[in-house]
Computed example of a mutant assay.
Amino acid sequence: MQLKQLLTEDRAVSPVIGVILMVAITVILAAVIGTFVLGLGDQVSESAPQASFSFEFSSTGGFDGDTGPPGTGDIVNLTHEGGETIDNSTLTVEGDGTKTLEYESGNWGSSGDGAVSAGDRITFSGVNSGETIRVTWTNPDGGSTNTIARSTAPQT
């Protein structure tokens, strides 16, 4: 084996590796820039908060005052069981019935900072039998909404 010839050899792999690395860096940069230009990067941070809510339905005797038909006017107690703390102004509680839910009592957002945290509870009346109640979160940055909890009132 000729050691002198080995040490004076001019050929190498480094130019090929350099070209491959430059192409890879260009492709990665193009993908990152393209993601943000198309607005896909903004959607990554718009995920709904992760929180657990419990629903407790109770009957008020089947009537809403003197005017409602039987099976209306029941009560739902919603409790934030755990998960992220959520700004009260971004939460909406609504049913799919013919009348709107009426606020009865609760301590959502009463901690001074307007945040709903674990243990906070709110009560609504006017729940119809079989009505689905939803806790909806509205993104404060973009108006998109997500249902983060739902439950259906029992049939009476």
Rank of each mutant, 00 (worst) to 15 (best):
T35N: 15
T35F: 13
V37Y: 00
V37C: 02
L38A: 15
G39Q: 07
G39H: 04
G39S: 00
L40P: 02
Q43W: 01
V44E: 12
V44A: 14
V44S: 03
S45V: 09
E46R: 02
E46V: 05
E46I: 03
E46H: 10
S47W: 07
Q50H: 03
Q50D: 15
S52A: 14
F53L: 10
F53E: 00
S54Q: 09
S54C: 07
F55C: 03
F55A: 09
F55T: 02
F55K: 02
E56S: 12
E56H: 06
E56F: 01
F57T: 09
F57P: 06
S59I: 11
T60L: 10
G61Y: 13
G62N: 07
F63C: 13
F63S: 13
D64W: 06
G65D: 12
D66P: 11
D66E: 12
D66T: 15
D66G: 05
T67W: 04
G68V: 05
G68D: 05
P69R: 07
G71D: 08
G71H: 00
T72M: 09
D74I: 06
D74F: 08
V76I: 13
N77K: 08
H80K: 07
H80L: 05
G82A: 12
G82T: 02
G83H: 03
E84I: 09
D87Q: 06
N88H: 07
S89H: 03
